[in-house]
């Protein structure tokens, strides 16, 4: 039989050795070929021995499974992922509570008009800190009729002792966003809750702060100006 015929039988020979389903006509032709072709009958014997060894090897690994340490590691990772998700919720809740408290403080601040000093600042947020320091600041009308010379009086208080500290979990400001800087007195306890390093001894006291408010009316950052009063 020619080499070409042997080549034609290569795949059927492998399928037969692997006990795979085969077309009846091909099976008959292969059987006939194996009877007259010594190299192919030798090849199929080797392939059948190989299939037997494969079965033995597959049986040996049939019951293999990952060691318990893998499951432990996976459970640890699951716990870690779960804990991270829980922390995210806690932080989000704390951020929302802080934003609410700042909003409340803003509202209360606006109710106490005589104490509020507001400076509208239009440039981009990057320049806000500098602008807040140097911009001319106008005081709101004070309840008691006072001589109108506010600029001179508030200037020393505007010295930037501390940088703005971002309020956690609030959306970042767009570089072109217009912002307001609102000066108000805030309770020390609220500032500590926001993570600001406040040196005041009495948490019940108020401190004077500049609050950076975005276009959406939400407070984004706070800066300490000076301690105001103790209760």
């Amino acid at each position: 039989m020619s080499g070409l015929s042997c080549r034609e039988f290569e795949r059927p020979l492998m399928d037969r050795a692997r006990n795979r389903p085969m077309d009846a006509a091909v099976r008959m032709a292969l059987t006939a070929h194996l009877e007259i072709c010594a190299p192919c009958s030798g090849a199929i014997e080797r392939q059948i021995r190989l299939s037997e060894a494969m079965e033995a090897l597959a049986e040996r690994t049939a019951d293999a499974s990952a060691p318990p340490s893998v499951e432990r590691a996976i459970l640890l990772e699951l716990n870690a992922v779960h804990a991270r998700a829980r922390r995210r919720w806690i932080y989000a809740g704390a951020g929302a509570a802080l934003a609410a408290s700042v909003a409340m403080a803003l509202w209360l601040g606006s109710a106490r008009a005589p104490k509020k000093i507001e400076a509208r600042v239009t440039p981009a947020p990057a320049a806000v800190m500098q602008a807040a320091v140097t911009a001319p600041v106008e005081t709101a009308p004070v309840a008691a009729p006072v001589k109108r010379a506010p600029k001179r009086r508030v200037k020393p208080a505007l010295k930037p002792e501390a940088p703005f500290v971002a309020i956690p979990y609030t959306p970042p400001l767009d570089p072109r966003e217009r912002v307001d800087v609102v000066r108000m007195d805030m309770p020390v306890a609220a500032l500590i809750a926001a993570g600001l390093p406040v040196g005041a001894a009495d948490p019940a006291s108020d401190v004077r702060t500049d609050v950076l408010v975005g276009q959406d009316g939400r407070a984004r950052a706070v800066r300490l100006v000076a301690a105001v009063s103790s209760n």
Partner: peptide, 9 residues
């Protein structure tokens, strides 16, 4: 896990 482990093995 067993099938993944056997394949890797």
């Amino acid at each position: 896990q067993a099938s993944v482990f056997r394949f890797a093995l």
